[in-house]
Simulated assay, not measured.
Amino acid sequence: MRLQPGPFADIKNESKQMEYRLYDKKKSRIQKYDMIRFENIKTRECVWTKVTNLYRSENFKELKRKLCVKGIVKDKDFTPITM
């Protein structure tokens, strides 16, 4: 997956632990324990990460609700900036 430099750096230095994506046809093939390659779109640097869990929802509002109920994120922490 190609990312802007900021989100890429956050994943690389592990300050960002979750990545939120719409569940489209391409991403529907992702399984738990898969390795995902993230690429910085400016520098083309890559980092590999392991999928440790998947949370599927119809939209971001429903995903936020599910993650808050499970205690995975706090309401105030689930914003477009954190995605």
Rank of each mutant, 00 (worst) to 15 (best):
E19L: 08
C46W: 02
P7A: 02
V69N: 15
S15F: 00
K70S: 14
K16H: 03
L67V: 04
K64Y: 08
W48G: 06
M35R: 15
R29D: 08
V51D: 09
E19C: 05
T49S: 13
S28F: 06
Y33L: 12
T52G: 15
K66F: 14
K26M: 06
I72F: 11
T82R: 11
F60H: 07
S57P: 07
G71H: 07
R65P: 01
Y33R: 13
K32V: 11
W48Q: 13
V69R: 11
D77V: 10
K25F: 09
K70D: 15
D10H: 00
D34Q: 08
S28Y: 04
Y20Q: 07
V73C: 14
S57Q: 11
G71W: 07
V73M: 14
E58Y: 06
N40G: 05
R37Q: 15
F38H: 07
S57K: 08
Y23E: 08
Q4I: 00
P5T: 00
G71T: 03
M18Y: 14
K61R: 11
V47K: 01
L54Y: 04
K25V: 08
L54E: 06
D24L: 00
E14N: 12
L3F: 15
D34T: 05
V47H: 03
V73T: 12
L3K: 01
C46V: 14
Y20A: 08
Q17P: 00
K76M: 13
K26V: 09
D34A: 04
K27L: 13
I72G: 07
C46R: 11
F8C: 00
I11E: 03
N59L: 05
M18S: 00
T49D: 10
P80L: 06
W48S: 12
K70E: 15
I30D: 09
K16F: 06
K32C: 09
E39V: 15
M35Q: 13
L3M: 08
L67I: 04
P80K: 09
I81D: 14
S57D: 14
P80Q: 10
K61L: 09
F8R: 01
K12N: 05
G6W: 10
R56H: 09
E19H: 05
N40H: 06
L67P: 05
K16L: 06
V73Q: 11
C68L: 06
T43R: 03
E14H: 06
K74V: 07
I72H: 09
M1D: 02
I81V: 15
T43C: 03
P5W: 01
K16C: 08
K16T: 03
D75Y: 14
K26L: 06
I72E: 13
G6T: 02
L22N: 10
E39W: 01
E39S: 05
R29I: 03
I11R: 02
I41H: 13
K61E: 13
L54R: 04
K32W: 01
I11Q: 02
N40Y: 04
R37P: 00
D10E: 13
E58I: 11
M83G: 09
F60P: 03
K42V: 13
E19Y: 06
Y23F: 13
E45M: 03
P5S: 07
Y33F: 14
F8K: 02
D77F: 14
